[in-house]
Amino acid sequence: MTFPYSDLVLEHFRHPRNVGQIEDADGKATEGSPSCGDMVSVYIKVDPEKKTISDIKFESYGCASNIATGSIITELAKGKTLDEAKKINWKTASEALGGLPKIKAHCSVLAVEGLRSAIQNYEERHGLVKEKKPTTEDEIHRRLRKVMNPLSGLDLERTNLVKNVQLKDGIVRVVIDLPPDHQFSNSIKEEIKEKIEPLWDIKEVVIEFIA
């Protein structure tokens, strides 16, 4: 019998490493929400001298991919410098796990986001980032690269599904090259909203499906 998951994914799912919270974390972040289906919290302790991640823990409300990715990124990030850890992406995590099913890409990308956000949180708290920059269309495109197309396991930008992006007066308009009643339209819509709405100067996100 073959599971859609690799042995390594199953191993991390059954015995996730570094689970829990860090009480006096230097950086922490939660990505996702119960409504999007998956949620990951990441906590880090940072060595102030070396700028390395000395300890890391995570919690997951999610499916097997989400739990396994959370587990593997804590292993990958531990001991790394912040700059090295920032480079860990979905591909790194997926390869370290021996591959993930394409349709599950969106569940696992969240754990990677969690790590990056925890680092960002540390940097913000320690005055390592400059003040808030206004959102640009480029930034919207960058965020759309984190929304996975469940058909291919690749992001919306790479699979040419983003037809148009407009940003005017805090209102973002995204046009997706899929029919409105496509199998994945609702789930893609929710994910786009989730990635763009938290931007500090965005008031509304309008998503249109045209195909």
């Binding site: 199953l10 059954r14 289906g37 998956d38 999610g62 499916c63 991919s65 349709i103 599950k104 969106h106 569940c107 469940p150 199998q183 994945f184 609702n186 789930s187």
Partner: peptide, 18 residues
Amino acid sequence: MQGFAVSTGSACFSRSLE
């Protein structure tokens, strides 16, 4: 993995991720 087959209403389980 422990020998039981059931189903769920979770989005992760559905073919449309809803």
